[in-house]
């Protein structure tokens, strides 16, 4: 029964390992497996389980043939495998500190595994004791080597960590600060809670979010305009015409930083730290009310509160360059082009 389970685990694990190998060698598209968003943690767990299965099978088969790997090396090798897996397989890479944490937990787990019963524990510590006792010339040499290498290595590591690091300091800014209650643009005061985009209108010219939401670009990859909703149609009226006018403003003023696809990768983005806001990310304009954008666009970086680093933002105070109408239209365009709906106050 036990061998049956081992075989099953080993075969499934082998298939997974083969797929991983094919993916990493570029023979199979990684997208084949990684297509489902948010799938990464599951994938990691499945892969690791599969690997455990394969290792179990391997050690079982070796033991059957009289080539059993000592417990000590099993534990050590598995831990090294985890180290390599976390470092090379996981993408995007995880920071060193998180990796260190995972590996410490893994070390404890490995330790618990090898000490789960008296027999295993004895097996595990035998090689260590052999070195400590140094009964053979080989072990004696090994012991001498360890006695010197361990303090020397630790000296090296701690020296490295004590060396002053001259990396860029990490400064976290608030990306979406609390907006003010009102903002005055071109002599007119706008109450952020009640103001509306005057161009978000239906064909009769009445404010209508539902109507305009139906005309924005489709969601998902590609994000194309709805068929028969072309802002460049010469007959386009109302909302769609305003979208085109907003787009004209965007592509005469904003794309230099925010990019042709509104993803923050414009012509000048290379010089920025961090690069400009990515409107296609669901964490930016999709989370905000239109009036927040109106305030942010009108007052620019210089109008930000302290926690948002006004000194470092190159975002112009657009009231210097654009009319109120142009600002509303460009906001309209940004939602149309990214396919996001502005948040409402209720």
């Amino acid at each position: 029964m036990k061998s049956l389970i081992l075989w099953a685990g080993g075969i499934i694990g082998g298939i997974f390992l083969a797929v991983i190998f094919l993916m990493s060698s570029g023979l199979v598209s990684p997208q084949m497996i990684q297509l489902v968003p948010g799938y990464m943690p599951m994938q990691v767990l499945i892969e690791l389980t599969a690997c455990v299965g394969v290792f179990a099978l391997l050690s079982y088969l070796l033991a059957q043939n009289g080539l059993a790997i000592p417990k000590f090396w099993q534990g050590t090798l598995f831990w090294v495998f985890l180290l390599l897996y976390l470092k090379f397989r996981i993408y995007p890479p995880i920071p060193y500190s998180v990796r260190a944490l995972y590996l410490a937990v893994s070390a404890v787990a490995v330790f618990m595994w090898v000490s789960s019963n008296e027999e295993d524990w004895k097996q595990f510590k035998q090689p260590i004791l052999n070195v400590l006792d140094a009964m053979t010339p080989f072990h004696k040499a090994l012991r001498t080597f360890y006695l010197i290498a361990i303090p020397a290595l630790l000296w090296g590591f701690s020296y490295q960590s004590f060396l002053p690091s001259l990396e860029e300091p990490i400064e976290l800014r608030t990306v979406h600060p609390a907006p003010p209650a009102t903002t005055k643009v071109h002599g007119r005061t706008f109450v952020l809670q009640t103001a509306q985009n005057p161009y978000r209108v239906d064909l009769e010219g009445k404010y209508d979010q539902g109507f305009t939401d139906d005309l924005i670009v489709e969601q998902g990859m590609g994000r194309l305009m709805k068929p028969d909703a072309n802002p460049w149609d010469p007959d386009a009226k109302g909302y769609l015409k305003h979208v085109r006018e907003g787009g004209e403003v965007f592509f005469q003023n904003c794309h230099f930083c925010h990019g042709d696809n509104l993803n923050g990768r414009g012509l000048h983005a290379f010089a920025f730290n961090p690069i400009p806001a990515n409107f296609t990310d669901s964490g930016t304009i999709a989370q905000l009310q239109e009036t927040f954008l109106f305030w942010r666009v009108s007052k620019g970086g210089i109008g930000l509160p302290r926690e948002s680093f006004p000194w470092a933002s190159t975002m112009p105070r657009w009231e210097e360059h654009l009319t109120t109408d142009e600002i509303w239209k460009v906001i309209l365009f940004e939602y149309w082009h990214t396919g996001f709906y502005p948040r409402t106050w209720d």
Binding site: F256, C257, L267, H268, A269, F270, A271, F272, G300, G301, T314, M315, P316, E320, H321
Partner: peptide, 9 residues
Amino acid sequence: ALGGQITHK
């Protein structure tokens, strides 16, 4: 890295 000054006129 340098970008054009496109904040102020």
